[in-house]
Nucleic acid binder design. Structure first.
Lengths: 225, 225
DNA sequence: AAGCAAATTTAAGCTACATTTAAGGTAACG
DNA sequence: CGTTACCTTAAATGTAGCTTAAATTTGCTT
């Protein structure tokens, strides 16, 4: 789960970041409205946490522009103002929920879960393709021949592939979605993980394969013997 | 057992807090309706004690909102009003019991026990997995090779694990459920207790093991030799 | 109120593993 | 046939988790 956190108070941002990461979210933090908009345009987030009062651009304007641009990522509005007026204005503009500061971390997490639940309700806990299945809860990849627990990065990669079987996924998509924009990691890491995953698929005797398309990316395909 | 106490009179709150803690409950205290709602949204409580007359938000409204949000934690209403009208209104909105001030501490404790009993009636007193069993009454962890009495924290941790065998429980979940939100305890304590419990499992020759999933949490698994 | 025992937390050094880098190899494509 | 993109492995790195022991707190007993 990848979240965008737009909050200009550095201390609060840092604290929230830590809490969210601890709860197994990948978090990109931005500190003003312009960045929030730029980053938010990327569809690679499962949710956006948006402070209303930010430099450069107001949170509500960010939200409005995002929606106008056709971005449908769920948005949770964060505001110091308890005024109902602002809340309603936010919901009108396409926010999914709001939270007034100060709030308990528990409520924040609950609301994020609720906000992203709609989407995950439609995504099964067990992904399958051919004789291969991936358990989203235990991070286990298995076939009839056994199962292997995957590391975080491996899991996210195979998850992306199994979510779109037969669909070509670019190396950049992997990088953006798993490592985030600001990463300094080399493109290399994607190749390395593809290699690791292939090895595990072979070990498990899976009848699927990851095909490379030169200069573009990878496709997961069921292989018919 | 973790309780949420929502009572705005500081003196009374302090006194109740002390009594409850003495009776082996973990207690989070809040002093107004808004906080009661925020904290109550967290499903990690075994019961909520809710005063009706509170600043910011009325107890009944808190209760109503909680139920609407799908929170089913048992609620005991506390009220200075002896009027039947309010009582009935509370029970309608989903309260499990009520108590009018002033009350004896004995009665309060009895009603809390009664309120939380329904839930515990369905949970067996003896949890087992593999050759390992945990007695919820005596806090004893045992196998055929012997038994060891656990401390409170150790008990709560192994209880959470044995309640969901094979299910991954995040470090945060342990912290929230056992230590509560406001704790300043380091994440470290979880590791320490996991270590203690593992040592005791080994001493007892248990055929279960606690597996760690890096960056996420722990899973209790029956080990097949 | 003092002192003791048990439970809990902190702190520190250590270990193991996920992740990344780097480097040498192989296959596709012109 | 040479260039480029990709593959694979091994080694380096960094960090999460493990384990103790010591410090602190709590609760009980006298």
């Amino acid at each position: 789960m990848r979240l965008l956190l737009a909050e200009d108070e550095r201390e609060l941002s840092k604290a929230l970041c830590a809490i969210l990461k601890h709860n197994n979210y990948s978090v990109d933090a931005v500190y003003d409205g312009q960045d929030a908009l730029d980053y938010g345009m990327d569809e690679n987030y499962d949710g956006i946490i948006l402070d209303l009062m930010m430099p450069k651009m107001n949170g509500l304007d960010v939200l409005e522009k995002l929606r106008k641009a056709g971005v449908s990522t769920p948005v949770l509005i964060l505001t110091a103002k308890a005024e109902t007026e602002d809340k309603i204005l936010g919901l009108d503009k396409g926010a999914d929920d709001y939270l007034t500061k100060p709030f308990s971390t528990g409520e924040l997490l609950a609301r994020i879960r609720a906000m992203t639940r709609r989407k995950s309700e439609f995504t099964p806990n067990l992904l399958t393709l051919g004789n291969l299945s991936l358990n989203r809860e235990t991070f286990e990849l298995s076939t009839d021949q056994g199962s292997i627990r995957l590391g975080n990065k491996e899991f996210q990669m195979i998850e992306m592939l199994m979510d779109n079987p037969g669909r070509l996924i670019s190396t950049e998509q992997f990088m953006e979605r798993i490592w985030g924009y600001e990463t300094e990691a080399e493109i290399n890491v994607v190749w390395v993980y593809i290699s690791y995953i292939r090895k595990k698929l072979a070990t498990l005797g899976a009848n699927v394969e990851i095909k490379a398309t030169r200069g573009v990316g990878y496709t997961l395909e069921e292989v018919k013997c």
